[in-house]
């Protein structure tokens, strides 16, 4: 039986290609490595079970981000996860201290800004694409980006360069 392809990629290729994207969404949302790993696995389990047809890599990536967000929402709702203000102790997925600090600052921002900031700055999505993925208006995305930056500055405590 021929292996299922996802936008021209095998399942393993898809996992390796978009693992960081899914991990980022899960970590930013849940702020806990253990919970993020569960959601990470659930996202790819759904990918394998559903096996939807994707038009392109962007379509596949957007689908994974959307499913990851939904999984995190369901996970947090299911386990009634408390708000954790301290920075994550597991530093395995940070390149360096600066990245960790920035990521910590991003995770400290309110949830409504977090997704937009992460997709805009980490995943390099444009406003229009973010609006499509999050299913909100572009102007809303712009507003969230503007306010999110200010919040992030306040949390991070640095100067805008």
């Amino acid at each position: 039986m021929a292996e299922k392809l996802y936008a021209g990629h095998t399942f393993e290729e898809t996992v390796r290609l978009y693992a960081d994207t899914v991990t980022g969404v899960c970590v930013m949302r849940l702020r806990n490595s253990t919970d993020a790993e569960d959601c990470f696995q659930n996202v790819f389990c759904k990918l394998y079970e559903k096996s939807p047809d994707f038009d392109s890599d962007e379509h596949l990536k957007a689908w994974l981000i959307r499913v990851a967000i939904n999984e995190c929402v369901s996970y947090a709702r299911k386990f009634r996860m408390p708000f954790i203000s301290k920075p994550p102790e597991d530093n395995a997925y940070y390149d360096n201290t600066d990245s960790m600090d920035m990521s910590w600052a991003l995770m400290e921002t309110p949830l409504k800004y977090r997704d937009v900031l992460y997709l805009y700055y980490c995943e390099q999505y444009k406003v229009k694409e973010i609006a499509q993925i999050l299913k909100i208006k572009e102007n809303t995305v712009k507003s969230l980006l503007k306010r999110g930056r200010e919040v992030l500055k306040t949390i991070y405590g640095g100067d805008d360069t």
């Binding site: 693992a19 960081d20 994207t21 899914v22 991990t23 980022g24 970590v27 930013m28 990470f40 395995a92 997925y93 940070y94 390149d95 600066d98 990245s99 600090d101 920035m102 990521s103 991003l106 900031l117 992460y118 700055y121 980490c122 995943e123 930056r149 992030l152 500055k153 991070y156 405590g157 640095g158 100067d159 805008d160 360069t161």
Partner: peptide, 13 residues
């Protein structure tokens, strides 16, 4: 601290 959004990198899996 210097604030630079470019420091906001992808998280390694």
């Amino acid at each position: 601290k210097d604030f630079n959004f470019d420091k906001l990198k992808n998280i390694k899996t």
